[in-house]
Structures are given as structure tokens and as C-alpha cells.
Write a protein that binds this DNA or RNA. Sequence first.
DNA 1: ATAAAAAATTTACGCGCGTAAATTTTCCGA
DNA 2: TCGGAAAATTTACGCGCGTAAATTTTTTAT
Lengths: 343, 343
Amino acid sequence: MSDTKIKNMEEFAQISGLSRPTVSKYFHDPNSVRASTRQRIEDALVEYDYRPNIYAMNQNRKLTKNIGIVVPYLADPFFAEIARNIETRCIVAGYSPTLFSSHGDPDLERQILDNLRLLKPAGVLLAPLGRASDRSNIEAFCDEVFTVLFDSNLEGLGEAFVGSDNASFVEQTVDYLCRTGEPPCFFEMRNPANPNANKRRAAFVKNMEALGHEPHVIRVEGTGWQFEEIGKQGGLRVLEDNSLPSSTILCSNDRLAIGFLSACYEKGLRVGRGAGCALRVASHDDHPFSRFTCPSLTTAGHDYDGVAKGSVERLLKLIETGERFKERTDTLCEAQLVLRASA
Amino acid sequence: MSDTKIKNMEEFAQISGLSRPTVSKYFHDPNSVRASTRQRIEDALVEYDYRPNIYAMNQNRKLTKNIGIVVPYLADPFFAEIARNIETRCIVAGYSPTLFSSHGDPDLERQILDNLRLLKPAGVLLAPLGRASDRSNIEAFCDEVFTVLFDSNLEGLGEAFVGSDNASFVEQTVDYLCRTGEPPCFFEMRNPANPNANKRRAAFVKNMEALGHEPHVIRVEGTGWQFEEIGKQGGLRVLEDNSLPSSTILCSNDRLAIGFLSACYEKGLRVGRGAGCALRVASHDDHPFSRFTCPSLTTAGHDYDGVAKGSVERLLKLIETGERFKERTDTLCEAQLVLRASA
DNA sequence: ATAAAAAATTTACGCGCGTAAATTTTCCGA
DNA sequence: TCGGAAAATTTACGCGCGTAAATTTTTTAT
């Protein structure tokens, strides 16, 4: 490799014995030039290690190869995992994903979308905060940029939504729990930020009634994204109160369940389905850590691959056709019941 | 707000009744123009909602306001947390941070650094993979871009390193454990990717010998970043073998400990310092989840704020002075012992 | 081998902004 | 009121590349 510094595409074209527009064409799509031309460029490329200036490229290109990924709370391993999955798929498809986390803050979510506009992304994959989101701001954003929502649905916003089928999550857990023991009560936050929580509660009520059981819902206080802490404090309270209507607890999500299990442990209550267990606890999400709780957590798991694949596919379709869908589509991935030790 | 679309700075300058260079100056530093001029621009700004094209700006600017943040594994809440902290500090300082995760993959780490060059960042905060990193590639990168390493030190690379004082972590846990019960054995991965692990083991041996105890080290098999799983499988094995040299286990890090606790639970072994407990388990990191393990985990915690603040400060100093430090500095933050239920 | 079609290349211009130098306007104090 | 300094403006050029249109070369068909 020569150590001659290449300043720009002009210079690089010169030493490759080509014209700049031809080289430009190559970088846009290596197959758009003759095979012999391509070879010459790639030979020069290993020799001189030139790379086009991304800012100059994006300045003039009508659409960049940028894809924005926005998640509400990256410190939650569920979002870290789904983001990792999505990110990888974008790279494979030849795009440059950039990951943003709202850190649970609506102001930051707004600011991220504002900054995202400047990046002129070809499209954006957005998992919104939910109830706390600035709906009108997101709406304006979706008006300018191809946006696919995932995980949390905001009705009517974006070109499509891909998420998990909350009804299927709850149906499977409720069915399993009722079949194998005392019907569950539902454990959740009083004011969940995420719309999925409301759908899960509604599905719980519906499924319980269909099975002829009274649907008890326990709502614990707490706001923000520290779900484990909220689950733990709420769990300690109901355990101290002895106010649980059932010895089977179905948590709205795994992070609450992690906190609840921690509360059970502190209270000396054995959780599981065997003899000598005081409670059964189940949940939804199949959070990356739920296999390491004590006991390991029985849960209905997201189809991580399905959600990631589906949302990326929808977005790429938008980008590649260059036009909006006739109508907004909702794709809901089925849950998979994961039986572990807690219920 | 008017709905007239402003195409570029030229147009915006015109409707504000100013010249483009003056407006340009304002966007570079609002205080560099007269107060009355500034007011006129800001009035026009709320009226017309113009924002400069970031690509055109960065193309010509000698240094951008971009800062790259690279972590080895974002699905680990420890890195998610430290990244969040760093990110926020960069924003407050007026920079645009972009977050990247190597996802435990050296190839991806290399690729991230390659892409980062194209972003012409003012500086980069890098937590490398460690042993798996491509040292020469990172070295070449640091040659081109101001880089501050954090969390994982690669000797001699980058302008500075800011991390935690592993010796202080281990000193505090070993001291506490020896003072309050049977001296610990050390539980770790056989081939840890992260250099911190080696420093912790060395510190364990040193501290144990200083206290007149034999330093037993248990090394479990497993590679990659699924530390919980490795800790759990390794834990199950040593518990089945009955090969533990001590009833007090000091894990190299919290994620291993989470797996180990899970193994203990499955084996029906009660962990904690009270009567009726078979084992004591302690660890290092104060991982965000360690307060929710069963039992909650006694650990030596990172000074998250200290590491984040320190590394950002070092980098900003580099950026703002525009010159490298005379010599590479290592900043080590003290650990803080967090007593919980497990030991 | 030759003309037509296809591909590649060259020419030429523009993107939106930074920035230096020269000029004009505004400001402030005496 | 006036002069000098500070701020603003004008002028002019360049950054690195995209891209349309014109031209040349290569390929394909006859």
C-alpha cells in the first residue's frame, strides 16, 4: 500500500486513470460500471485507501443511506437486544443505521427527531415512548420522513407498525396458568407509559372472563422507567398487606416481575410450581435476564427476530419504492410461551 | 409560524434582512454577532424554522461538533448506563454524540472505527473490546482522531484513559469478606476478554496474600459476552463437583455473579450472611440489576459519574486546546462498597 | 466488416455552506 | 459633532461530490 495521501475523488480518479464521474458512479453502485473498470478502481483502492467524503456525498444525494433507529430506553436490555437485531439487519442491507435512545424523556425524544431531520435519513425506525410522546411532533416528523413504528403503537402515526401481539401473549399465559393451577391476578403499574400495557390488561380481563374467572388487577404506584424498582416496592406492599387475591401472579412485563420476585425473596416466599411454593409468578417479554432470575421466569416471549425483520422490511420497502403505502399496516408477531421454573 | 419553506441559508438571510456570512457567523456562535442582530435572527428563526444543512456545514468546517462513543456491548446494562451518562454530558457541552456498539465483535469494532473516520469527529470516547481488539487498527485510528479510552485500558493507546481502579474494587470486597467471615475464593472466566478481569484477579491474589490467606481462583470455561450464562453453567458445575474451596465466593463481575446466584438457587443453596445460609457471594461493578437479584448482591460499585465525567472532560480538553497531551494520563476512579444481602 | 445500440466517459454546472479580504455601516466616547 | 473602533456586509472563492447532457468508446447485431 502506497502512503500517498488522496485528498478527494478527483485525485483518486486521476491515479486510477479514470474520470471522477465514473468513480462516483462506482461508489454509488459498483455494478454500474464495466467489469474492467471496476477492477481498476478496486486495484487502486487497495493501493491508496481512499474513501469518499460522506458529507459531500449526502449533501447532494436526494436520499442518503442513513437509517435512524430510536428506542425509548436503551438501558433496558429488551430494547438493547431489539436494537442490536435491527441495526445488524440495516447494515446487511447496505444502510448506515444510527441508534438513539430517548432515555425515557419526551424532550429528548423530540430533540432526537429534530436532529434526525438534519441527517436526512432515508427512513426511521421508531419505538416511541408511548403516552408521554409528543404526538403532534411525531406526526410532523412522519410527514417528512418515512417512518415505521415498532414495539409501541401510536395509532395512525407512521407508514406502518410492527410489534408483538399483546393479546397472544396474555392468552397463552392466562391459558397456561389457569390450566395448571389457581387462576392468576394481574400485576401492573397504575399508569403505564407504554400502550402495550393497556392492551395486555384488556386481554387479561377478556381471557379471564372467557374462562369464567373473575379478573383481578393489582395496580402499583410509580412512574418512570425503573420498572424493577416499581415492581419490587409494589410487590413488598401487597405481600405485607396480604392483599393478593390469588397465589398466581401474572405480571404485565418481565421487568416488573424481576422486581416482584425480588420482593418475594425478601419476604421469604418460595416461588414456583412445586410443592412448598407459596406463589406462582409469570410474565411477558422474555427479557434477556429472565432466565437468570430466582426462580427462572416463566414468560411469553417476543419474537425478536420477527419484529426486527418485519419492521426493517417494511421500511426498506418504503425506501426502495420511494412512495408511501396505500394504507398503514399493522403487523403483529405471535408470542411464544417459555416455561421456566417460576410458574 | 409562517409556512414558507426556507431552502438554504441564503434565503433565510434574505428574509431576516441580513447577509449570509453574518447568519453563518451566528450559527457558529450566537454571541459573535451584535445583540440586535442576534435578536433579528432569532425572531426570524421562530417564524420560519430554518436549520442549516449539517452536511454542508461539516464539509467545510475544519472540525465538526461530532463525538463518537463506542462501547463493546450495549446489551450489557452497565455499558448502556455509562453510555447514557456520557452521551448526556456531551450534549450539555454542545456536541453531537453518536453511539456505537461493537456487539462483542472485533470485526464490527474495526468497521465502526472506519466509519467513524468518515464522520470527521472532533473526538472519540472508546471502550474497546479488550483482548479481542485489533490493536494496530485502534492505534492507527488514535493517530488520526483525538481518542480517550474508558473502562478498558489498552496500554499506550489513545491520549488518555479513564476507568475504575480495579485494585480498589477488590481490596474493598476482599477486606470486607475476610473481616466478616470465611476468606473468599475468586470466581472468573478462564479467558476473560476484558483487561479489567486480569487486574482484578491479580489484586485478589495480592490482597489475600497480604492478609495471610491462600488465594484460590476458580476459572470457568466459556467465551463471548453471555456472562450470566457462563456464570450459571460454571456455577452449576462447581456446585455439583463440590469443588468450592470456600463458602465465600467473590465473582469477578456482577454478571457472572447473577449467573452464579441463579445456579445456587437451582441447587437449593441459600446465599447470604445470615444463619442457614450455605454461601456468601459478592462481586464487582454494581450492575444496574444487582439490587434485584435474589438475594440482592453485595458488590463494589463503579463510580459511574466519575468515569463519565472524567473521560468527557479529558476529551473536551483535547478538542478545545486542539493539541495532544504531553503524556498519556490514566485516571482511576475509586470503587464504593455496596452492602446488600448476598454477603 | 459495419452500422446501430449500449455503455462508459467527459463536460459542465450546482449543492449549501465556510471563510478570508476588502469595504461599508454602526456604535461609542470625547 | 466627529473620529476611530467594532460590527456588519459585500465580494469572491473553494470544499468534495452528485448528476444531467453531450460525447466518445465499446459491444452487439447484421
